[in-house]
Design a binder for these strands. Structure first.
Lengths: 180, 180
DNA sequence: CAGCCAAACGGGGTGGCCCCCCGTTTGTGC
DNA sequence: GCACAAACGGGGGGCCACCCCGTTTGGCTG
């Protein structure tokens, strides 16, 4: 998924794990703008090593969030089996999770080559959306990318506030006018 | 609105204008994270002077965007006189404008003391919302703050893409299900 | 088990940024 | 014009990203 070639030497793999563990801590505290130097320090490695392992801040963040994003994707596939395919439920879980996981929301913006976290979710989202359209619960002219962008915008804005994230997403899904 | 006391010496006012002009250029190019040093340099002033005029990045951004935000507020009051009070129209204009004015979306997040740009819009938004509720076009349990947060999240996400901003806002306003 | 060498490491340099201290200049009221 | 508060700005401290290049090390081979 990221720019990892054939893992080579043992120390290389060990250091990668150390870097990811340190990054997880620091990013959880400071968000996407965490200091790369501090991450390297905390891993007991030189900052050059960090840069060799992860060419960019984005590559590092992608690796840090990889597991959580996979879990979200799996959850989406699971929900897609339920009656009506729980698009709305999934979007809310997605938004809450990305809002409360510091730095993740920013990392979910699609990238030029789509090598980041976004690509991993786009597929599940598309399935859920298709099911929802079939069930008459999603207007067909709304694209998956727009749905994801909406959830992403809400998550960025509601960083650290899951209640706000849920509320905003529900408004966006049900609209603003009284139900007729 | 910002931390401006009684404007005192002539050079003080002159320098303030120079700083704001430089800031407008650089922020338009680089967004909210523009380099303060570059702004000072471009204004032909020392960076210490910039810090004396604007205690924080946020204070500077607030001043830079002041005029545009006032215009948005005025536009809101104007729309509030029309039939049904154009809440939806205003929200879309707001979102488009903040999405395309680099750095503004970030500056519109409410601040602790609410001395930033947000306060200037909260009042108009409240009027528009009240009118919309009376016209049966807004569920009363939706708060103004949530509406603004939603528009703000969309604008942050759709930075530099007015079409995306419009589309997302319309989805959020009309909801995701087919109109019954 | 030793020796070799590509792979991997990391100290430290470069250049940038923010923020502020404090000695210097300047505008203004008298 | 003069005195003095008001305002300025050079430059230092501390942090950061990024990268060069001399040094260490893992693991293969015989």
């Amino acid at each position: 998924m990221t720019s990892q070639q054939i893992p080579q030497r043992a120390d290389w793999r060990r250091n990668r794990e150390r870097l990811l563990a340190a990054a997880a801590e620091v990013v959880a505290r400071d968000g996407a703008s965490a200091s790369l130097e501090e991450i390297a320090r905390r891993a007991g490695l030189g900052s050059a090593t960090l840069h060799r392992h992860f060419r960019s801040r984005e590559a590092l963040l992608t690796a840090v969030f990889h597991e959580g994003v996979e879990r979200l994707a799996a959850r989406g596939r699971e929900l897609n089996e339920t009656a009506g395919g729980g698009l709305a439920v999934w979007l809310e879980e997605l938004t809450r999770y990305t809002a409360t996981t510091r730095g993740l929301a920013v990392s979910l913006r699609p990238t030029v080559d789509d090598s980041g976290c976004h690509g991993m979710l786009a597929d599940v989202a598309a399935e859920l959306a298709a099911t929802a359209v079939r069930a008459g619960r999603l207007r067909p002219e709304i694209t998956v990318d727009d749905l994801l962008a909406l959830a992403n915008g809400i998550a960025i804005r509601a960083e650290n506030d899951p209640e706000l994230a849920s509320r905003l997403l529900r408004i966006a899904i049900s609209g603003v006018e009284p139900r007729t």
